[in-house]
Amino acid sequence: MATMTMIEAIRDALDVAMGRDDDVVVFGEDVGYFGGVFRCTQGLQAKYGKTRCFDTPINESGIVGTAIGMAAYGLRPCLEIQFADYVYPAYDQIVSEAARLRHRSNGDFTAPLTIRMPTGGGIFGGQTHSQSPEALFTHVAGLKTVVPSNPRDAKGLLLAAIEDDDPVIFLEPKRLYNGPFDGHHERAVTPWAGHPLAEVPAGYYSEPLGRAAIRRPGAAATVLAYGTMVHVALADVAARGIDAEVVDLRTLLPLDLDCIAASVRKTGRCVVVHEATLTSGFGAELAALVQEHCFFHLEAPVARVTGWDTPYPHAQEWDYFPGPARVGEALAAVLEI
């Protein structure tokens, strides 16, 4: 097994997918010759040719719209939106078209495409390079939404997403591209090297969509997290010596409700963490499900730790980002009740 960064693991997944299946095509802004602004597609054009990996005009609606046409024809497009913050021009194509094509044509046409996009904050990217729009996709019937938290999952989940027969939104937490960021921005950057989940199997494997992973077993409380916040939660739980169970959801839709419910029934306390804004965020869905499925096991109200309901700021990044201090406070509060 090789040690990989998240970028290398994603590139490896695309390479494997393209090598196994001629119908897999990869495209987006700057993804061809250059290999993407985060270099996730580097080398793919040289290897597979410019009709299987190419640069597109800057038109997100066009990128997704053409991908839907290709997917309906029978290809398996895996496209890149340069930043999740730039997906909105494509929202109509995703919501009104890709998500509903199967249903409205009764399976006559389908849209098996994967839309990759860097998401989340932590890089001083301001309001146009930091957003976490996952709830805008989980709210839409017909879409699947995946958020990996480490290189090994990124590769396996991306391969599963490409093979999936429905449209998949694949959100890549950009602050994790080069290391397992735990929210301690004041400390030196930790690289992926040495992290067990940076050990990535060679060749083909896939990680089924819809299965959460318990990153740290515990009995005192359950932390539900995904993407960057998994590492923030793990670091905080370790630092405070709290015996919390940290669940990495990995896929938001389909969601591993069995794993979530089993954990919360065991611990009786639950903290939900995400970077996205609070109101109508995915945390609201999680809190509602926990309430529905674990009500008689709950010892405390479900707590949410999230970004504030403001546009993602530039200078105040670390006041906005739900870092270790806020996760810890929420855990302490939930444990005290």
Binding site: G125, G126, Q127, T128, H129, P311, P313, H314, A315, Q316
Partner: peptide, 16 residues
């Protein structure tokens, strides 16, 4: 510099 005199209060990316 997103400093205390930033007319946009630190909200926007530099040069915007």
């Amino acid at each position: 510099f997103s400093n205390e005199r930033d007319p946009l209060k630190g909200r926007q990316l530099p040069i915007m």
